[in-house]
Amino acid sequence: MSLPQVLTHRHTTKAYDKNRKIPADQVSQLLAALRYSPSSVNSQPWHFFVADNDAGKARIAKATSGIFAFNAPRVMDASLVIVLCARNTLTPDYLEALATQEQADGRFASEEAREAGHKARSGFVGIHQQAGDVATWTQKQTYIAQGFLLLSAALLGIDATPMEGFEAGILENELNLKEQDLTPVVIVSLGYHSDADFNAKLPKSRLPEKDIFTKL
């Protein structure tokens, strides 16, 4: 399929076939999409919790209680569920670890280049620290990773459901997120839709191009 065909075929899945599992090699590709997602100044301000078994999915599903109970089957019946979390702070130690990894990966021609890159990134983080919006900024970066994950899944013929409908406090307690200085941003279920997925049968609806594009 062409890219427009993939985009129009992709939809938010409402019901999964719990008997169909994503092949291991494609799971690896999905995780690679997250790992290689772009982020501002290569800050990579995220952490991903991955569940591919009933026990792991049940821990995540605890957060889909009460008013969000409608999302519980979309967690438990999916093949793979990922909790995308954002870092609340970017500490000096974390920024140093990024520079060390970049150096190990051969991104710097010299020690001077390493220090210049590290100083530039730290300065940019400092701007957000002074503005008091580091957590908001890192969450925005995490949504970029979600976009890469959803598109990669669609290209592989895998269905997905992004969910903000969950109790963040429950998930924070279950996954010890506060101790790790993380905030849960979105849950994404992945797998293959079942016949009960009404959304798979509906046509895509978007505003017309003339309403959302302005050519300069």
Rank of each mutant, 00 (worst) to 15 (best):
L182T: 08
L84A: 05
K18T: 07
T142P: 05
L98M: 09
V41L: 13
L98H: 07
G123E: 11
L84K: 09
T8Y: 01
L190Y: 03
V186F: 06
A113C: 07
D181F: 13
L175F: 13
Q129L: 08
N71Y: 01
S122N: 11
R10A: 05
Q141S: 00
Y16L: 02
L171K: 08
L98Y: 01
D211L: 11
F148C: 15
A32P: 09
R10W: 03
S79R: 04
K140H: 14
G66M: 00
K201N: 11
A200I: 02
G132M: 01
L182R: 04
Y94Q: 06
F198I: 11
K204F: 08
L95R: 02
T8A: 10
V188D: 05
E167C: 09
G169S: 14
Y192V: 06
S28W: 08
T89C: 08
H47D: 03
K140Q: 13
L151V: 07
R10Q: 03
R107D: 04
L151K: 04
G165K: 02
V27R: 14
A135C: 01
D195Q: 09
A69W: 08
L34K: 14
L177H: 00
F213V: 09
G191D: 01
K140L: 12
G157S: 06
A24F: 11
D93C: 00
F124K: 11
T214L: 08
E167M: 10
F48A: 01
L7V: 00
E115H: 12
K204T: 13
S39T: 10
I67W: 14
G169L: 10
P184Q: 07
H11E: 07
V83W: 09
I22W: 02
F198S: 12
L98F: 00
R114I: 09
T13V: 03
S79H: 04
A200D: 08
Q141Y: 03
L177V: 02
K14S: 13
A97V: 07
N199I: 10
V27M: 10
L95A: 07
D17Y: 05
R35K: 15
R121K: 13
Q44G: 11
E209N: 13
D52C: 13
V75C: 04
R20C: 11
L98D: 01
D77N: 08
R59Q: 15
Q101S: 13
L3N: 05
T100R: 12
L3A: 01
